[in-house]
Simulated assay, not measured.
Amino acid sequence: MFNNLAIDVALGLIFIYLLYSLLASILQELLARIFNTRARLLTKGLRRMLEDDDHSTELGVFGRFTFFNWIYELGWSVVYFFSPFYRSPFLKKFYAAPAITFLGENSARARPAYLSPKTFSQTIVHLLRSSNNDTYDTDSAALKAALLHNQLLLPPATRAHMEQLFEDAGQDVKQFRILLEDWFNETMTRTSGWYRKQTQTWLLVIGLGIAGSFNVDSIAIARILMKDKTVREQMVQLAASRNPGYTPITDTLIRKNMLHRDSAYYRQDTAIRIFVTDTTLIGVYAQLRNDAGEARNVLGISRQCVQDTSSGRLIIRCGYTHPYQQNGWLILAGWFITALAISLGAPFWFDLLGRVVKFRTTVPPNSTTTNNGQPQQLV
């Protein structure tokens, strides 16, 4: 069995990062549900497809610079947050279609967070076919006339692309739907990437908040684990006792629900996917907070407020009690390191913790095992 200082310090730090990464993931998921971010990003992806959503031309020469584009797009994100269909008439018609409207959970969450390629292509075909007042012998003729006369007021680039897809399909409606679904899948792949980037940004911001509020100073924690054998052993025991309980949280709650690469938009097993209630999330959050408090007690890192009356007035001063937390800049650096670690996500630290635990419990090559199962060094 490998059991040395470096491994135990690494094990303690990895457990701390896993614990607070899980806490941050739960908070991020609760915020995602409150602000309905999955549905908003799905709308953003559809807007990119159906509304020629490119504002860079409005910036003129400044549109060549990434920084100005980022600021400008951030402003438009605020506009779309409050008015998702602003300057998007066709997108509004798309969401008003019965096949899309009835997918919403309720009036507060009228827009769906998940959409299948089949529903997308079917809705587009229905909108094109119903836009004609005239009667046509075939659906192909109706779609061709709809694209030609553009009674739906499709944006120029979107209309041109649909016309090309219709011609590529040989003006066959079934093949046209297949090409629409391929287009949708390709766009949703990009949108899933946007969601992962947004999730990592949220985890970084939440991680900074957690590090500051819980005083998770990576530098101080590493120094404590290296210097104090008792704390190190207690932390290893805490990690060993809590790790099995974190398996269902990481695997079921986070991997299969929150952070699945396509979970924000579409999965083939949507009908049987596991839906986690808000009550469950709050219960898991309470459990993780208790574990965080226990870990903080083991490490002995805390804030303390004292009353100062030396000046004749009652002044309450709050500070850090641990001797390893006397330098404010080092504390900030420790918090920032913690936030960066949290932004990597709980699955990363869960897998790494499993590898370290397995390595730590491995019998070294130069040892054998006694009858009671304890490793015995070979002479």
Rank of each mutant, 00 (worst) to 15 (best):
R232A: 06
A295S: 15
I331C: 00
Q122R: 15
L143V: 15
L148D: 14
R267K: 11
R33E: 10
H322P: 13
E294L: 12
T135A: 14
K227N: 14
L147P: 02
N133M: 05
F94L: 15
Y265M: 08
I178Q: 04
W70P: 00
M226N: 06
A32E: 13
G104L: 09
G45D: 02
E105C: 09
E29H: 01
A222W: 02
W76T: 04
P155Q: 11
I14H: 07
E51D: 11
A240D: 14
Q175K: 13
K93C: 02
A271V: 10
R313T: 15
D182Q: 08
R38F: 01
D251L: 12
L11H: 04
A220M: 03
Q287F: 05
T279C: 02
F120N: 09
T279M: 10
N297Y: 03
E163Y: 00
H126P: 00
D54Q: 05
F82W: 13
E186N: 05
R190E: 07
G319H: 07
Q325C: 05
W202G: 04
L11C: 04
R303P: 03
N290M: 12
S21N: 06
G245N: 05
T199E: 07
T191N: 08
T252V: 07
F120I: 05
Y266H: 11
W202P: 00
P98G: 12
N185L: 11
I342V: 15
T230D: 13
G60M: 11
F15S: 14
T135S: 15
S192A: 08
D168N: 10
T230L: 11
L344I: 00
H322L: 12
L50W: 03
K256L: 11
R109P: 03
R196K: 12
L179K: 11
G283R: 05
R355Q: 05
H126Y: 10
Q151L: 12
K118V: 14
R159A: 12
L50Q: 01
T321V: 10
R355F: 03
F350S: 02
Q287N: 10
A333P: 01
N372I: 07
N3P: 00
S107D: 15
I34R: 02
T361Q: 08
T279F: 11
R47E: 07
L91D: 06
N366E: 09
T370F: 00
R111K: 15
Q122T: 15
A96I: 02
L204Y: 12
A24Y: 01
G300R: 08
R177G: 15
W76A: 06
T138F: 09
P117L: 05
K118G: 07
Q237Y: 02
